[in-house]
Amino acid sequence: MEIRHSVHPSDAKHYDTAQLRNHFLIEKLFEADKVHMVYTHEDRMIIGGAQPAKEALSIEEPDTLKTEFFLERREIGFVNIASGEAIITVDGEKHELGKLDTLYVGKGVREVKLESKDAANPAKLYFCSALAHAAYPTRKLAIADADTRYLGSQLTSNERELNRVLHADGINTCQLMLGITVLKPGSVWNTMPSHVHDRRMEAYLYFDLNDDARVFHMMGEPEETRHLVVANEQAIISPPWSIHSGVGTSNYAFIWSMAGENYTFDDMDTRQASDLK
C-alpha cells in the first residue's frame, strides 16, 4: 500500500508538475491478478483497483492498517468498470457485478474475495474505503437502479448523466458517498461551476477514455488553480480545500467518492468560473 500525506494549500501552490502529480495523481491502479491501493491521509480514504483474471484476489493490508482484518473499522464500495463480469464473495456470499454495477460492504466483514467470471474477459474493480463507526449491510446496486440526474447541456459542452449510488437516499453507509458520472458524446466538461467542500475530501477515477485522449483536471484553491493531465483509468486525490472539475479531449466517465464530516450530497460551496484564477 502506498501512503500519501496531506498537503497544505500554501505549499501546493508552489509545486511544479512532477510534485503535483506525485501528491495528487494515482497513475496505476489496474494490473492483471494484482491489487493496487493508495492510503491518503485526506480523511484516511483508501483508493484501489483490482483486476482478477486467473486467480481470486483478497483485500488485505494488516501491516499498514494494524487491524486483524481490512474492514474491522472500515467500509468499502466496489464498482466494476469493465465489460467483463465480476464475482465478489463477502463472507461466503457471492455477488455478481456487470459494468458500472456497485457493491457496498460494511464494517465488520472479515473476508472479501474478488474474481472474474471469465478470465479471458476480466473485470476491473475500482474501490474506495473510508473509516466507519457503524455497520451497514452489504448491498448491490445495478447501474440501471441508481438515482440518476441529468445535468448540463450541449450548448455548454457538459451534458451528463450523474448516478448517485452510495448516499442517504440510495445504499446507506456510515460516511462513504459514491456515484458515477457519464458524459454524453460531444460533451467534455464536468462539474462546472466548480465547488469545494471543506468538510469532505473527494476522489475521482477517470475511465472510458481512448488511449490517446486526456482529461485536464482542474485543482487548487479557487484563486490559485492548477491542472493535472490524466489518462484513462487514473485517479485523483482531491483535498477539501481544492476545486475539482475537468475538461477532456473527448467525452469520458468518472467515479466520484467522498468521505469526511457531513453526509449530504449538497454540502458544497460553489465557485463560479468568473471567480477562478
Rank of each mutant, 00 (worst) to 15 (best):
G49R: 09
A50K: 03
A50L: 02
Q51H: 13
P52I: 05
P52N: 11
A53K: 14
A53Y: 09
K54T: 15
E55D: 03
E55L: 10
E55N: 02
A56M: 04
A56H: 09
A56G: 12
L57T: 07
S58T: 15
I59C: 04
I59L: 15
I59A: 05
E60Y: 06
E60R: 05
E61Y: 11
D63K: 03
D63M: 11
D63F: 07
T64H: 13
K66P: 03
K66G: 07
K66F: 12
T67K: 12
T67S: 12
F69L: 05
F70D: 01
F70C: 01
E72W: 04
R73M: 05
R74C: 00
R74H: 10
R74S: 04
R74D: 02
E75S: 06
E75Y: 01
I76M: 03
G77W: 01
G77H: 06
G77K: 08
F78D: 08
V79R: 01
N80D: 04
N80C: 08
N80I: 03
A82C: 03
S83D: 15
S83V: 14
S83R: 15
E85C: 11
E85I: 08
A86P: 10
I87D: 12
I88T: 03
I88M: 01
I88Y: 04
I88H: 06
T89W: 06
V90H: 06
D91M: 12
K94P: 14
K94I: 05
K94M: 12
H95N: 06
H95E: 02
L97N: 07
G98K: 13
G98M: 06
G98H: 14
K99M: 14
K99E: 13
L100T: 10
D101L: 04
D101S: 06
D101G: 12
T102W: 02
T102H: 11
T102Y: 01
L103K: 10
L103E: 04
L103C: 02
Y104Q: 05
Y104G: 01
Y104N: 01
V105D: 05
G106I: 02
G106W: 05
G108E: 08
V109Y: 10
V109L: 10
V109E: 04
R110M: 01
R110V: 12
E111A: 15
V112Q: 08
V112K: 05
E115Q: 15
E115C: 09
E115F: 12
S116E: 10
